[in-house]
Design a protein around this nucleic acid. Sequence first.
DNA 1: TATAATTAAATTGTGCCAAATTTAATTGTG
DNA 2: CACAATTAAATTTGGCACAATTTAATTATA
Lengths: 150, 150
Amino acid sequence: MSTKSTNNMPQKENYDSLKLENQLCFPLYAASREIIKKYRPYLDELGLTYTQYIAMMVFWEQKKITVKELGEKLYLDSGTLTPMLKNLETKGYVHRYRDKNDERVLNVEITKEGEALKEQAVHVPEQMSGCIALAPEEAMQLYGLLQKLL
Amino acid sequence: MSTKSTNNMPQKENYDSLKLENQLCFPLYAASREIIKKYRPYLDELGLTYTQYIAMMVFWEQKKITVKELGEKLYLDSGTLTPMLKNLETKGYVHRYRDKNDERVLNVEITKEGEALKEQAVHVPEQMSGCIALAPEEAMQLYGLLQKLL
DNA sequence: TATAATTAAATTGTGCCAAATTTAATTGTG
DNA sequence: CACAATTAAATTTGGCACAATTTAATTATA
């Protein structure tokens, strides 16, 4: 038998779980946006948005990838990636072309201009490192917890 | 004197800082979106988006607040809040009115309907708790690190 | 081999999100 | 008081983010 509602006394429900300060997702969401905001002045110099920047990171490591694979890496779908990759293509940093063996698949490959951008981009993490108010071991701890969440 | 670039040997720059796996911001950004995605089925039942939900959390605690104060709490500006609060007003959950003492200020106050929604909303954190793959002490740790970031 | 099912991108529509600008109200200073 | 500076919202604009749908290509199966 439940200990709840077994009498007729007026019950005051416990709403603590609805307090903003008891949410884990909210500081996650807020911190994410605040940090991306701090990237902006540095990314503006490259002419990239944050989403474009993390996509370029993939290309700097891998040169060529399909839209599907990129989406799995970045947790983004074609609704976000298609216009963003077209934008990167317009800027001249990637080239998009259908796969010869399977025309459904779109390959995206980095260009020379995209590779060259890496030289400027390498300064972004340097400049950002001063913006993060965490000790190295705390950053590692946070990284581990976030990976566990994902 | 720096230990770097003191000779004429060809240098290979270290690009490790540009690897996706070495980013702290990216898992933060991805985890935030993935968790908000998990909220959706439960929030759909309330007819709220995640942003509307965290705004309602503030009203459930405080009843009345100005747009400016709400923005400070949620790390959001008027460009996001104005249309979102109009939407909540249309749904009948809040009432918006100018401050008598300072017409620049817009007060937002929860309605009876907004208060009533709390009864259904209280089940959201209950249902979500099963979706988070962290032990309670890990969650506390994560919470602390995120607060430090903010 | 038809055709049904599946798959990958693209498209569409809604809702953020934030920088920049505008509007209106208030405050500070000569 | 006049008027410059400041402040709070609203508006505008561009870029995501994602659910749902559509289109086109491929694969599986009767």
